Simulated assay, not measured.
Amino acid sequence: MVSHNEHSYDPRRTGSWLICKTCGTQFPTHDKNKVTTCLICDDPRQYVPPSGQSFTSLDELRSTGEHENIFTPIPGDPKGRFVGINTQPKVAIGQRAILVQTAEGNVLWDCITLLDNETIKKIKGLGGLKAIVVSHPHYYSTHLEWARAFDCPVYLAAEDEEWLTQHDARQVFITDVETEVFGTKVLKLGGHFPGSLVMLYEGRLLIADTFLATPSGLGDWSTDAVGAARERPRGMSSFSFMWSYPNMIPLAPDALEQMWAILKNYEFGSTHGAFPGIDIVKTPEEMKRRVLESMQIQIRHSGHEEHAMLK
């Protein structure tokens, strides 16, 4: 871990800094002899691909002209206050950031690696950023580049500080279960990482992959193949709760119980995950029922039939 004094945005200074090709995390050096592995990908939640560890840089990503950030309205938001930002073709993990436009200013939920002049121009045209909130270390990416470019703080869970590759005065460490950030509520659920976060704003829950929508959660059972109405089959999960998603290691039942103890106190009518296309929009009653049922399904099928969550 390297500490740096606060700097203003200067792509000439940071453009050659190394970025892990697998997870998109930026390291504050261009010297490949100083950074030979990625601490994020060496953590058992992540992985190094069969091709081995490799690095790129923002200079390289920008210079090829192959990648651009696409701005897409989030489903279920008729007022247009939520905009997904996703790099195409995919860079690193491929997650999206979500621009949340509140009455107190714009907040960026999560972060992506690519930051270029066009992205800065578009976001400033929408009012800039008051803050950035990053759900967990897999999406730390180039968050300090973004914070410097928009001269704003970036909120991170205090429990996950050990996975940072840089320190800066703009980083704000969240210690409470609930934190207000410019009109949004940031909730610390833990589980996937000790400090894994979700964000709630006007009934929409941004979940990153603190928990993740499943194919059966996204499926449409409203009609059958000939158009007749039908009900969704019982016992279908809508979400998975994993310690490691790429390595398919589930969270233990007690971790789910701790997450539910917090989340049950809040109302939300939709969930919006880390990747495009995994949005679920229902009624608040249906959404909370689906979260609880999904937790119970995971607990039951992992052999814990007597766990308190099933009662």
Rank of each mutant, 00 (worst) to 15 (best):
E161P: 04
N106R: 09
T113D: 06
T36Q: 09
E66A: 15
P153H: 05
L115D: 00
E180N: 12
D220M: 10
N265R: 15
Q166H: 14
E286L: 04
Q101M: 15
T165L: 03
D31W: 09
I70M: 09
S3N: 14
T37K: 10
T214Q: 05
G203N: 09
N265G: 13
F241W: 10
K185S: 08
A225W: 15
F275G: 05
T113V: 02
L164H: 02
H30V: 14
K264Y: 05
D160I: 03
P75A: 07
M259F: 01
L156W: 00
N265Q: 15
H136K: 10
P75T: 03
P284L: 07
L144F: 06
V177C: 13
S54P: 09
T113A: 08
E267K: 13
E293C: 11
H167A: 11
A261Q: 13
L197C: 06
T210K: 01
T179D: 01
A92M: 07
F71D: 11
L200N: 04
T29P: 04
K124E: 15
D176R: 03
Q26W: 01
V100C: 12
P75S: 15
T184A: 08
R96E: 10
A97Q: 03
D42V: 11
A213E: 05
R290H: 11
G80N: 07
H192K: 11
Y47H: 07
K90N: 08
G269Q: 04
G125S: 08
V134D: 01
D254L: 03
